[in-house]
Simulated assay, not measured.
Amino acid sequence: MIQDKTEDLKAARDEGSSRAVGVSAAPITTPLKAAIRGGCPRCGQGRLFQGFLKVRPACEACGLDFTRIQTGDGPATFIMQIAGFIVGFSALFVEIRFHPPMWVHLIVWLPLVIALSLALMRPGRGLMIGLQYRNQR
Rank of each mutant, 00 (worst) to 15 (best):
K10S: 09
G124C: 05
S24Q: 10
F78P: 05
V55M: 13
Y133L: 07
R137K: 08
Q132Y: 06
W103R: 12
F85Q: 08
G46C: 15
E15L: 14
L64T: 01
P101H: 12
Q70S: 12
A35Q: 07
S17R: 06
I79C: 00
Y133E: 05
L116R: 00
D73P: 09
Q70C: 04
A61Y: 10
D14K: 12
T67S: 07
G38M: 04
P41Y: 05
M128T: 06
T6K: 14
Q3V: 09
A25C: 05
M1W: 00
G74N: 10
L112Y: 11
D8S: 13
I36F: 12
A34Y: 15
A83W: 00
E7P: 02
P111L: 01
L127C: 11
V104Q: 03
G124R: 01
G84L: 11
F89C: 09
H105Y: 13
M128H: 03
A83S: 01
I79A: 05
I114W: 03
D4T: 11
R13N: 13
A58D: 07
C59P: 05
A61V: 10
V55Y: 10
I79S: 02
H99V: 10
K33F: 13
W109F: 14
F98L: 11
I82K: 09
M80W: 09
Q70P: 07
F78R: 08
S18V: 02
Q132H: 11
Q70A: 13
C43K: 02
F49P: 12
M1L: 01
T71Y: 13
R68W: 05
F85G: 10
E7N: 12
A25T: 11
C43I: 04
G84H: 02
C59Y: 05
A35M: 15
I28V: 11
I86M: 03
A91W: 15
F49E: 14
I82H: 12
W109L: 11
V94Q: 02
P101R: 13
H99L: 10
I96Q: 09
I2H: 07
Q132A: 08
A115C: 02
V87P: 10
A76W: 03
D8T: 14
Q81K: 01
G22M: 03
F78Q: 07
Q45K: 14
R97Q: 12
V21A: 15
G38Y: 00
L32R: 04
C62R: 10
P57S: 11
H105M: 02
S18R: 11
K33Q: 15
A61D: 14
G16Q: 14
I2K: 08
I114V: 15
L112I: 06
F89G: 12
A61W: 08
G51K: 03
P75N: 07
Q50G: 08
T29D: 03
S117G: 12
P41G: 00
R97I: 06
L106H: 01
I114P: 07
G72H: 03
W103L: 13
A25Y: 05
A58F: 10
F98P: 10
L92C: 04
D65W: 04
L48Q: 06
S90F: 01
C43A: 06
S117R: 07
M80T: 00
I79L: 00
P57I: 05
G74H: 09
A12Q: 02
L92M: 08
E60W: 07
I28Y: 12
Y133P: 03
I129E: 04
I129Y: 06
L112T: 03
